[in-house]
Design a protein around this nucleic acid. Structure first.
Lengths: 158, 158
DNA sequence: TTAAATGCAAATCGTTTGCATCTGT
DNA sequence: ACAGATGCAAACGATTTGCATTTAA
């Protein structure tokens, strides 16, 4: 369900719908992982082969402006790309594993309380909240511990 | 006090100290605002005119690897630059105003509790925590409200 | 002395732009 | 019909790289 979220939002806002936009939107909507502009282009081209990267970036810009998608950095795990995801009701946290590259999402009422606190005590009107944590997932955490200790001992090099 | 933090850390780790590194480090250490690589280069060149941008980036990379500085995006308020700051004891939150570009720092025990919760329930070993909020500071918030309403009414254009 | 750091110039990567053409409404 | 969206190619800004040379320890 809620498959056409983005599309419907655009229609209701009277935004012009081109086949290119439909393609990009459909890909973002169905995506199972966080996509960067490049993969977005590749995937959307299967639906609309003429699609150009400029159009992808322009569509991303449009969706960002309308606050229908969120832009993530995911701790710059692989270069300086940006990643996109459909904006959801409550903000969530992204955990990025330096070991295996895994991205895990996390939600917590504490996060909402923290944001409330900021709104209240700093008088800041939050529009976008991005909490990203870099570190090691349970699997990589143990594997990683060994290497780390070596490094700390002397100055690199075993 | 604690003026030589970074320098001392490097010395104690047996890292080779060049005049270029001293210059970059001294600039980061004394900085009153968040600096990007470009401004860092400009400022450090006053101390070490021969300094090249490659060296600045390499030094930043070194300090990041040693976890002596943190890298920020500051909601990409002006392009895709990165900003740097000396790593402090407790993590803090950055509030970036879309209106005037102001950056405000914010700390809260709730943030630490949230991180603890993540460590505990997700088993994730946090190395870097970056919480950035984009929105409007108190001043810009009121100024901004008017414009926003117009936009929402029809599809852009007055 | 020598492994590591530097400057320089060129390359790379993600993203943006100007402009002639096309298309949704 | 025409404002707005597109493709194309070139430009862009931030960052990285290879390599010959210099330097800290």
């Amino acid at each position: 369900m809620q498959r056409r979220q983005l599309l419907d939002e655009l229609v209701s806002k009277g935004i012009r719908l081109t086949s290119q936009r439909r393609a990009v939107i459909s890909v973002i909507q169905e995506a199972k992982s966080h996509l960067d502009a490049g993969s977005l282009l590749d995937l959307a081209r299967r639906l609309e082969p003429s699609l150009d990267r400029a159009t992808v970036y322009r569509t991303i810009g449009l969706l960002k402006k309308l606050r229908l998608i969120d832009e993530l950095d995911l701790m710059h795990l692989e270069g300086e790309k940006h990643y996109y995801e459909v904006r959801t009701e409550g903000d969530h946290i992204h955990l990025a594993c330096f070991g295996c590259g895994m991205i895990q999402e996390f939600t917590s009422p504490l996060f909402d309380r923290l944001k409330e606190e900021i709104t209240r005590t700093a008088g800041f009107e939050i529009r976008v909240a991005r909490l990203e944590l870099g570190g090691f997932c349970p699997k990589c955490s143990s594997r990683h511990r060994g290497e780390e200790e070596e490094k700390t001992k002397t100055s690199v090099k075993h």
